[in-house]
Design a protein around this nucleic acid. Sequence first.
DNA 1: GTCTATACGATGATAGAC
DNA 2: GTCTATCATCGTATAGAC
Lengths: 185, 185
Amino acid sequence: MPRLTEARKELRRAQITEAAVRCFGRRGLERTSIADITAESGLSTGSIYAHYRNKAELIQATARATLVERAETLGRYADGDHPPGPDELLARMTAAIDPVAARFGVQIWGEATTDPVIGGIVVDMIDGVRAVVRDCVTAWLVKVEGRDPAEAGERAAPIAHRVMALYLAELLQAALRPNTEETTS
Amino acid sequence: MPRLTEARKELRRAQITEAAVRCFGRRGLERTSIADITAESGLSTGSIYAHYRNKAELIQATARATLVERAETLGRYADGDHPPGPDELLARMTAAIDPVAARFGVQIWGEATTDPVIGGIVVDMIDGVRAVVRDCVTAWLVKVEGRDPAEAGERAAPIAHRVMALYLAELLQAALRPNTEETTS
DNA sequence: GTCTATACGATGATAGAC
DNA sequence: GTCTATCATCGTATAGAC
């Protein structure tokens, strides 16, 4: 019996955070009011506060949800028997960038600068993705380049570092691309 | 006569924006109130609003001031008869990163996501720095690597692109490094 | 759990003396 | 140009009915 209600609860939370990313993508973290999110989600103030203690907690939850989703997407591009090389991997990662998520992501970077909790989330996420990239590059070095596994592990780290930097730069660029959806200011 | 007063005015504006970056670096763009900036600058509300129409304009001015200052610093690292190679250039650029400015810079990225004016400032700044880097790399290719000028120009662009990505990633990392100065929440 | 209505605090901005 | 004092607005969060 807790099963079903627990699932429903999680569904509501997802409904809220998904509405939240859209709002944040439009007006930014602090400019979107709770009222904006109620309008976007179709729920009410009370309902939102039943699921999140306050706005900060909602932002954290939204950040976590978005970032782990992105990490999972990228992880999918990195595995398989024929691991892509660095260039191909980067191309796939770049292609997978969603403009709205990118905007929200960069806003989260800014918030991480000030809020230690968000900071931890962002650092964990970046470290996680970097690890995935490193593993992928290692596998590629071994399986298609024919390197020795031990040597590949060493070589992979700096390559992964560069791939990550290029990816983050692409993310930033996507976030800065003028928003098609007008910023009703 | 307008000379002197104009200079004084510019000095006041600098005094305000410098106090502003410190405040922004501490508490973030929207969490710092005008009161915070008056406290940090030693000025009063009225004085600030005599120089800037509103808070948004103050943020824009602060962003412009900080970003052009950074661009100038980087430009200095890039010229001379013995232009540094890409690795050395990146090392210098990274070493020149100021933690407070980095935090503010990343916050500005987030704001650029939403505010078209800030967006323009950030894009201009990134493009400007990239151009400086490209010129430096070109000069290096010609003067120390002995490449043909025409060929150097072509090769420099992608290298500059990578150097920029690595630099932006370092900037982000610096901004995410836990703040020593506590976030009086 | 979800709603409506509301209290309360914070802060951006202005007025007017000096 | 700079100050102090004040206003008005807005948005978070809560209370209480259903």
